[in-house]
């Protein structure tokens, strides 16, 4: 049986029909607008008919990292060395000459690179004397940045209290060298030559005073060239004020984490 509506003759739509159509259109528009998530709405309708549970397939491939366990560097014993300020000229692969200053006392070490306006201050860890807490000060930015243990440890010569006290090489590298008979005197101090046993050691040569635990000169060689550091000035004890906490030294500078600073400068 045909309905009354179906039997309506063709002709201009009546006002009531238009209202119905308009209501349906508005309803559909509103319905779609309310359906969430927006673009996934149709996807949802397509998938609602499925049993909407799927599980993870077994992941068959082995991880390449299984054998990549990180090995912590060896931590040399705590050291308490004479207080001094040592100014070096560092030549980097024949291309760069820069001033490098090492300040040191029993509880703090500072590496200063005046040309770059950067400085790293190390403080012996209060709970584990083998470790260091380190801060990077950046003059142009007016910031003191706290470094995480892992950040500092990326540079082996800054990885521990004993290492950072040497200012450019590690205790392990130093102890691998063998003394020769050669000596030199400078700044009223005698330095003995220590040389690498084989050609595979990167640290080839150090002129070393064991009492002050300070180098007159050292030379490192690798595939990309040579780094040499030569003492220009030696003061004992360390210059006054150089080993103050950087936050006290620059109270007007901001202090934040290195990672947060990266976030901040990235995001403006």
């Amino acid at each position: 049986m045909r309905s009354d509506s179906e039997s309506q003759p063709e002709g201009p739509p009546r006002r009531g029909a238009a209202a119905v159509v308009l209501t349906v259109v508005i309803t559909v528009v509103i319905w779609r607008a309310l359906e969430v998530p927006g673009d996934a709405a149709s996807a949802l309708q397509r998938t609602d008919g499925l049993t909407a549970l799927e599980t993870l397939e077994p992941r068959a491939t082995p991880r390449l990292s299984e054998t990549q366990a990180f090995s912590s560097p060896a931590w040399p014993g705590a050291a308490s060395r004479p207080s001094l300020s040592a100014t070096y000229l560092r030549s980097v692969r024949g291309a760069v000459d820069e001033v490098f200053v090492l300040h040191r006392d029993a509880a703090r070490v500072s590496w200063q690179s005046p040309d770059s306006g950067r400085r790293v201050d190390f403080e012996q860890h209060g709970l584990d004397p083998r470790r260091v807490l380190s801060q990077l000060s950046v003059r142009d930015e007016g910031v003191v940045l706290d470094l995480a243990l892992g950040d500092a440890a990326s540079d082996p010569s800054a990885a521990s209290w004993a290492d950072c006290s040497l200012g450019g090489f590690t205790v392990q590298e130093l102890t691998a060298l063998r003394p020769t008979e050669a000596t030199r005197e400078a700044f009223g101090v005698e330095f003995r030559e220590l040389r690498a046993v084989g050609e595979h050691e990167a640290l080839r040569e150090v002129w070393w005073n064991a009492e002050l635990e300070v180098a007159l000169e050292w030379r490192r060689v690798d595939a990309s060239g040579e780094v040499r550091q030569v003492l220009q000035d030696l003061q004992r004890p360390a210059r006054a004020g150089e080993l103050r906490d950087p936050v006290e030294r620059h109270p007007e500078w901001r202090r934040l984490d290195f990672a947060d600073w990266l976030d901040e400068v990235s995001e403006g």
Binding site: P37, D39, A43, L44, A52
Partner: peptide, 21 residues
């Protein structure tokens, strides 16, 4: 997405719609 209700993870969503999922 995986698990109960994860089937809504389809298409291109605004990140606000992840809340709705």
């Amino acid at each position: 997405g995986v698990g109960a209700g994860s089937h809504r993870v389809r298409g291109t969503l605004s990140n606000t719609e992840i809340f709705q999922v």
